[in-house]
Simulated scan of single mutants.
Amino acid sequence: MREPTVASLMTREVITADVGSSFKELVQLLEENRISAVPVLDGGYPVGVVSEADLMPKEEFRGGTEDAPGMFAGRPAKHRWEQASGVTARDVMTSPVRSVAPGLSASAAARELAAAGVRRLFVMDSDGALVGVLSRRDLLKLFLREDDELRTAIRDEIFGRVLWVDPSTVDVEVTGGVVTLEGQLERQSEVEIAEHLVRALPGVVDVHNQLRCGWNDTAHPRQTEIFG
């Protein structure tokens, strides 16, 4: 079964700033559009990102009037102090842009977000042009799929087309994204594969697998050890 891609989930209309955008313009962009970060473009291509965190040093260090961090301070603290004196997007932005390709799968994008510890990834095509933005919220929308839609996909796609099992022999119930499977399959391996495929289906919250099997083809024969 095909997994949703970044292109199918991303927001295509992206609010952007230019490298020459002033500090105040950046604050206004975030406030007026109710967003927490904006990509910075240079010649139409993303070169950095300005987030609320990038703007806060202006207040943290009172515009650079506070003493600079000591010689033993880490690079992050020194970078924030430098941002405090910034007046344009180029001065305060964070680079490089964390990006993903439109064709990346939803699960791979979720792993990218988790590994980077960011709220969003900007989507860039093969030429480096900005084509969208993918946020945590965009990915979480997958769990808003209707229960009936999930039930149909499980019955028709997973059991009917992938496992070649007559859907009428399996009872599939979905409540709040939680799937309950009942019925009997021929082999234990099919029971395990069915649960794996259902859990991997976008929008499924959990699976209660109560399927039975005619015979267990996964059991290992008992081996007798002979000690001499």
Score class of each variant (00 low, 15 high):
residue 104 L to A: 12
residue 88 T to F: 10
residue 156 D to V: 12
residue 145 R to L: 06
residue 28 Q to H: 09
residue 57 P to A: 03
residue 125 D to Q: 04
residue 43 G to C: 03
residue 190 E to I: 03
residue 150 L to S: 01
residue 178 V to A: 13
residue 170 V to I: 15
residue 119 R to W: 04
residue 164 W to A: 13
residue 138 D to G: 01
residue 110 A to Y: 10
residue 134 L to Y: 02
residue 186 E to H: 09
residue 4 P to N: 02
residue 11 T to K: 01
residue 167 P to R: 05
residue 102 P to K: 14
residue 46 P to G: 10
residue 96 P to F: 14
residue 124 M to F: 06
residue 121 L to E: 03
residue 60 E to P: 00
residue 108 A to G: 06
residue 113 L to Q: 04
residue 152 T to H: 08
residue 60 E to V: 13
residue 33 N to L: 09
residue 146 E to C: 07
residue 32 E to V: 10
residue 143 F to Q: 04
residue 137 R to A: 12
residue 116 A to N: 07
residue 199 R to V: 11
residue 171 D to K: 11
residue 24 K to G: 05
residue 126 S to P: 01
residue 92 V to D: 00
residue 73 A to Q: 09
residue 45 Y to H: 13
residue 37 A to M: 15
residue 96 P to Y: 10
residue 98 R to A: 15
residue 52 E to W: 11
residue 11 T to H: 02
residue 195 E to I: 14
residue 189 S to P: 00
residue 192 E to I: 13
residue 38 V to C: 11
residue 14 V to F: 03
residue 166 D to V: 11
residue 86 G to L: 02
residue 51 S to Q: 08
residue 199 R to Y: 09
residue 19 V to W: 04
residue 187 R to W: 03
residue 212 R to V: 14
residue 18 D to H: 13
residue 102 P to Q: 15
residue 100 V to G: 03
residue 126 S to H: 05
residue 150 L to M: 04
residue 174 V to S: 01
residue 41 L to D: 04
residue 54 D to C: 08
residue 76 P to S: 05
residue 156 D to I: 04
residue 49 V to C: 05
residue 193 I to S: 14
residue 169 T to Q: 12
residue 23 F to Q: 03
residue 218 T to Y: 02
residue 141 K to P: 00
residue 77 A to Q: 15
residue 144 L to A: 15
